[in-house]
Design a binder for these strands. Structure first.
Lengths: 202, 202
DNA sequence: CCTACCGATCGGTAGG
DNA sequence: CCTACCGATCGGTAGG
């Protein structure tokens, strides 16, 4: 029924196992976002990738470790997508637009929902939470730089950190209400956010 | 050791029991916000109010029922605090300011964190979720009216529903990062939000 | 990675 | 509201 697999090395980077590990991470991330960390069972995750209930623990020490890894790698992926999207764009207003649009795409088109897992930070111990906080800071760096540039150009009233955090919250709450079939495209939603930040624009 | 109490009527509004019920609701709300619904045990709640493990079920049919009631009554309370705060205020910009400040006070000074429980809606069944959605709509009505008035007065570019929802998300994410000891008062934070919405202002 | 399994915990209930 | 309790589930492990 099930294809057999010889035991490999635990937690290693064996090429063959790496893909299984990634599969676990992606699947866990999705389930954690949908049902929440606590409500998601390690058995749910195992089922979803076609493993037996004990097998995720071959790849990860604990359920919490799975969460930490899913957050870390997800934020990493999201960060790279941001950098790729803004590469070569000099105009700060356009940069901000692309950051927002990319972030919303990641969140709302299910490409990389990792930022939503930040809600689950409370389930991490202090050490893991610190690791994730550092990665989150990096994720926000391009945002702060762009806001600073906009303020310097006089297109934004203030680029104090609260502005960035308010913006981040505004975007991360959208999955609570945005529906793809609601007649508003992500581009239009991006327009709306931009108008809010930079003032009138049509 | 423990004071004895005669059995009363279940789920009724007996004056004596009402306060215990309210105590359960307030305590449950706080724990649900802090640890999350799934991570909070009915035993945690019972302990926190000095009951035995089975006793919460004398007041509520199920744990989910406790969540629903905590959300419903909490949003009710928050709604009333909003109405009281804006009563007699005619200037729409000032009204918005008071709405924001009151909402932030409720969230960040622990007076009424119920809006944060909206995250936990996924733990409700469809019927309960619909109930809560209706109460949430009512909670947002004063906001929409105020935004409409601002748009009519030309002080806001657009009062389309997404603006309200973006604002709501911006505020509801603040508990993720705001610290009372961070050198920024709630009044200053309110200024920051207002400036973001209405444009330059110093 | 599977089999087989365990200890702990959890939501909930009967009966007073 | 307490006592006493149960069935189910869950994270995790030993051993191959």
């Amino acid at each position: 029924m099930r294809r057999g697999r010889k035991p490999g090395s635990p937690n290693s980077n064996t090429p063959g196992d790496a893909s299984r590990r990634e599969e676990l991470l992606r699947t866990a991330a999705r389930l954690f976002v949908d049902k929440g960390f606590e409500a998601t069972t390690t058995r749910d995750i195992a089922d979803a990738v076609g493993m037996r209930s004990g097998s995720p623990f071959y790849h990860f020490r604990s359920k919490q470790d799975l969460l930490k890894a899913a957050m870390a790698e997800g934020l990493e992926t999201g960060y790279r997508s941001l950098l790729a999207a803004i590469e070569g764009i000099d105009d700060p207003a356009l940069r901000l637009r692309v950051l927002i649009r990319t972030h919303l795409g990641n969140l709302l088109e299910g490409e990389c929902e990792a930022p939503l897992l930040l809600f689950e930070s409370r389930s991490l111990d202090a050490a893991a939470r610190a690791e994730i906080a550092a990665i989150t800071d990096r994720y926000q760096k391009p945002w702060q730089e762009t806001l600073d540039a906009l303020a310097a150009a006089g297109q934004l009233n203030s680029a104090q950190p609260p502005v960035r955090l308010l913006l981040f919250g505004m975007l991360n709450w959208t999955p609570q209400w945005y529906r793809a079939d609601g007649g508003q495209s992500l581009d239009q939603l991006t327009d709306c956010v931009m108008a809010l930040l930079l003032g009138a624009r049509g």
